[in-house]
Design a protein around this nucleic acid. Structure first.
Length: 546
RNA sequence: GCGCCGGUAGCUCAGCUGGAUAGAGCAUCAGCCUUCUAAGCUGAGGGCCACUGGUUCGAAUCCAGUCCGGCGUGCCA
């Protein structure tokens, strides 16, 4: 039974009975102060103005004609203008049984079943290694995809890449230069905007192992070999890093296929025939000014190469035509400018851009001993995601990268992350899980059959508080998904862990009277289920021991 | 200049579809282990919610303006 729906229906009945017809939205909130009950509504205060009566008066009227099931609702009373609702112990026990019954599926909902979503994230070109920014993108994208999955969506995880453009040529030239520097002449010129990272030297060294000096001439064919080698090398590393992050994407979409399949040409023709493009200074311009934007922009350069806008629009067209109900992009704040262009472009060719949802996340700054660690693309000095994973571990990385709202700048505190101690927030959650496992370990039990246990023995405030936390889980996942804010799950799990630690501290399990022990074991097991499921959504492991 | 994001405790951040006394972690201080993991628990101090005005019975939350910080504003992606 869904308690919110039930409450909604009895309140609507009550309003009908006392002849208040209003399309007012009835909302139930969890009061900050626990003494105010488990849920409260400000309905009476909202109606006050419309009805020109005092909130207290209206509230009394509503409550007097409320007809509710006393087995689940203990009482409903009035405080100021608020109507406060308190659930019965039996309600909590029934919910607890439900958690145990659903186990690994507890938290899943079917609210969005039948809908499908494509989530595109990471999408780094194979021109280098993943760094911290990609890490945040990856963690947010993957966690969101998990949240879509848990709320009923059919999910496709996608990675979009370009192995053909300027950037790739630049990498090729950079590798070639390092190759020549090692083999022939240490002063061999390095491309002006080349990739300075150490990894380029590594690629060159590995290239030499295989091809010796056979590529020294730098012919078109030689460069093609270098390009392919570089691309594969980078992709291997990227995929390896992602697998460490527990990320596996379903589709790797190559931008080049947009050209090969003629989708770019089709789009160009389409735009031209609609009179939305024109030639000027040897370039093709798109009339964004007719699409509600400020300025027209170049979509094909005078060199004949398209700018990023054209393939981006074609790619989104392609994704929309696949028929998913929702197409989600995860972008860093530096990509903000492309979004209006793509949306306008897609709308221009008659597609519904409301199906595109763009999540923008702000940057990550790496802090060490209270100082910012500077990164530089120019000198190649950077801290790669792989190095970070080596340094602090997979669980810490995944957790730290989503524990803040996507709109906030994320300060990644290396010193804190490295610390294997109580200061580190991930361990707080994992520790709660490990503690529960150790109880069952001690008793040499795997789990416990709830059907034979009298859960009505759970009457302590700390026990009820813990149950209250646990039953929020499905709603939390829905809310995190709807708001596209994975950090909501982090906050929630911290509260679950806190409620458990308090319970654990105050309520002994082993050594108490057997019936009570069994009831508490059920509660512990339910906590374990929530922690495990929640952490797995975040891509974090739940250790048995710590 | 314009656009997007942010400004809440010493630090890092929740809270932002308006509600009751503004929260958490870290840091500081004071307590709790002969019984299930002290990576835990209990308590204390710490706030002009950037500023000004407006809307409202009620504003950290909504609106307008101002100030500060980040990102963007390419025939780069």
């Amino acid at each position: 039974m869904n308690i919110n729906q039930y409450l909604l229906s009895i309140f609507q009945d009550s309003l009908k009975k006392i002849n208040i017809s209003s399309d007012i939205d009835i909302q139930f909130d969890i009061p900050r102060n626990k003494e105010h009950g488990d849920l409260s509504t400000n309905l009476a205060m909202k109606l006050s103005k419309e009805l020109k009566r005092s909130p207290q008066d209206i509230a009394q009227n509503i409550v007097a004609s409320l007809n509710y099931d006393k087995t689940y609702i203990d009482r409903i009373d009035i405080a100021g203008g608020f109507i406060n609702i308190k659930f019965s112990q039996q309600y909590y026990i029934q919910q607890l049984t439900n958690i145990i019954a659903q186990k690994k599926n507890y938290g899943r909902s079917n609210k969005y079943s039948g809908k499908s979503v494509n989530v595109e994230y990471v999408s780094a070109n194979p021109t280098g290694l993943l760094h911290l920014g990609h890490g945040r993108n990856a963690a947010i994208g993957d966690t969101l995809a998990n949240l879509y999955d848990w709320t009923g969506w059919k999910v496709t995880r996608e990675y979009y890449f370009n192995n053909a453009g300027n950037q790739m040529n630049n990498l090729t030239k950079s590798i070639y230069s390092r190759y020549m520097q090692i083999l022939k002449d240490e002063n061999f010129p390095f491309p002006e905007d080349g990739y300075h990272g150490e990894y380029v030297k590594t690629i060159a060294e590995e290239l030499i192992k295989i091809h010796k000096s056979n590529l020294a001439e730098g012919s078109k064919n030689d460069l093609a070999i270098i390009k392919k080698f570089g691309e594969e090398w980078c992709f291997d590393k990227i995929k390896h890093t992602l697998s460490r992050m527990k990320i596996k994407q379903d589709v790797f979409y190559n931008e080049d296929s947009l050209y090969k399949d003629g989708k770019i040409d089709t789009l160009l023709n389409d735009l031209e025939s609609k009179g939305l493009s024109y030639k000027k200074d040897g370039a093709v311009w798109l009339k964004f000014s007719q699409l509600g934007l400020e300025n027209d922009r170049v979509i094909v350069k005078s060199t004949g190469e398209p700018t990023y806008r054209l393939p981006d629009i074609a790619y989104h067209k392609e994704k929309l035509l696949r028929g998913d109900d929702l197409v989600v992009d995860i972008f860093g704040a530096d990509h903000i400018a492309t979004i209006p262009d793509v949306l306008a472009g897609v709308r221009a060719i008659g597609l519904d851009n409301n199906r595109i949802k763009v999540i923008i996340h702000q940057f990550v700054t790496l802090m060490e001993n209270g100082e910012q660690v500077k990164m530089s693309k120019r000198t190649g000095k950077s801290y790669t995601l792989d190095e970070l994973l080596d340094d602090v571990g997979e669980d810490v990385v995944r957790f730290f990268l989503i524990m803040r709202g996507v709109n906030t700048h994320l300060e990644f505190d290396l010193s804190l992350a490295r610390e294997q101690s109580d200061k580190n927030p991930v361990f707080y959650l994992q520790y709660a899980h490990a503690r529960i496992c150790s109880i069952f370990d001690k008793l040499a039990m795997q789990t416990i059959d709830s059907s034979k246990v009298d859960l009505s023995l759970l009457v302590e405030q700390n026990e009820i508080n813990l149950i209250k936390q646990l039953i929020l889980f499905p709603e939390i996942l829905l809310s995190a998904m709807q708001k596209s804010e994975p950090h909501i799950v982090c906050e929630y799990l911290r509260e679950v862990a806190a409620a458990f630690h308090i319970f654990y501290h105050d309520c002994r399990i082993i050594g108490t009277e057997e019936k009570l022990m069994n009831a508490r074991l059920i509660l512990s097991n339910a906590t374990k289920v929530v922690l495990y499921n929640g952490l797995s959504i975040l891509g974090v492991t739940s250790p048995q021991k710590m």
